Simulated assay, not measured.
Amino acid sequence: MSMELGSRERPTILVVDDTPDNLSLMSGLLRDAYKVKLAPSGERALQVVSGESKPDLILLDIMMPGMDGYEVLRRLQQDAAAASIPVIFLTAMTAAEDEKIGLDLGAVDYISKPINPAIVLARVHTQLQLKFARDVLQNHNEFLEREVAKRTREVVAIQDVTIRAITSLAETRDNETGNHIRRTQHYVRLLAEHLQAHPRFSAELSAENIESLFKSAPLHDIGKVGIPDRILLKPGRLDADEFEIMKTHTTLGRDAIVQAEQELGESITFLRYAKEIAYSHQEKWDGSGYPQGLVAEAIPLSARLMALADVYDALISQRVYKPAFSHDKALEIIREGRGNHFDPDIVDGFLQISDGFAQIARQYGDESIKP
């Protein structure tokens, strides 16, 4: 893109001076190359600038009755829509201190009276070229920002669609899940947001990390894809050997995510949480869980949140080995698990917002649940 002034519509210059002869002189000098607007006072100049068609440059006299040029410039600088218009002072005041005041206020140049026409035209041209260059750069930056935002939205959408497709595929192999994945995803976010101000959890539960937890939660049971149908779909309780095989879904899920991340060649935040949740959501606070038997805070926070969300939903859902419990019964069982199955502070937080869990269960309910 050319930055020559001739490549676009003629720029508009606003001349502000309380002397009619000076306005006539400047208009005659500039009008062959530019559109010229005239203002005989600072107040009138501000009215012109406040209109829809703003000037590209302002030539501003300093010594005017009423509102002087300094005050006009102050007002312009306070207006976000006008602050970027370059201002050149026209003045008979030649003291260095006067120039410093104007430049400190935001003027781009000074032209002394009586004017030299060649100097005026040269400086006006230079400042307009600079403004045009800034405008081009600003427009380019705004375009790039829009493109980055658009591409970011596309990437996020692709992530979401991919996770949904994968988890939906996993759901088709497990006839007991129903909307379990969607419910647990929303339970985790609600619980994490509630615990955001807790001193034990605030450092990790930033808004960005909570969003990553929300994205990751649907992958908690992805490893069940690798469990044989005779076990995954068995219409009854599993025996000891079958349960040992079922327990491997945690490792299978974690390993699948690790492999995907390695193929990407970089670490991604939401995949970090996905690995933690898939591998450790069956761990228990007292160390009696699996697959590693982790104890207390050795269990990742993401997995501790998922553990409670997962158990709550299992309790209110019908299974081949149990009826659907009521919301109150689920609360009782989780309260009993405080300090052995679950992180005590997470249980306390859950009990404070348990009505929100019930609401999510109703919103994403199916025939298997009893919220």
Rank of each mutant, 00 (worst) to 15 (best):
G102S: 04
R319V: 01
K247P: 03
E176I: 05
R319L: 00
A303F: 10
I115C: 03
D32I: 01
N340H: 05
K284F: 11
E211W: 03
L57K: 00
I257Q: 10
N141Y: 12
V72D: 12
K329V: 01
V87M: 02
E283W: 08
R237S: 13
L103I: 13
D355S: 13
V136A: 15
T248F: 07
E332P: 00
M1S: 15
A274P: 07
G265H: 02
P199F: 07
T126F: 07
G287R: 05
W285L: 08
L38P: 00
V16E: 04
E97S: 15
E242N: 08
L191G: 03
D160K: 03
Q78H: 14
I115N: 07
I115Q: 03
S302I: 09
I231H: 13
E4Q: 09
A149E: 06
V15P: 04
I88W: 06
L315G: 03
D56N: 08
T250S: 04
P11H: 02
E367L: 04
L46I: 11
S368N: 10
P40M: 04
D160L: 06
L23V: 02
A256T: 10
A192T: 11
G66V: 13
M3I: 08
R44Y: 06
L252M: 02
L76K: 02
D313I: 07
I111Q: 13
L25V: 08
H341R: 14
M306H: 14
S280M: 05
T126E: 11
K234P: 12
Q129P: 09
T19L: 01
A314P: 02
S27M: 09
N141K: 12
I85Q: 12
V136I: 08
R272A: 11
D328C: 03
K275G: 02
M306W: 08
R75A: 11
Q159L: 10
A92I: 15
A82H: 14
L191K: 04
S41V: 10
R123T: 08
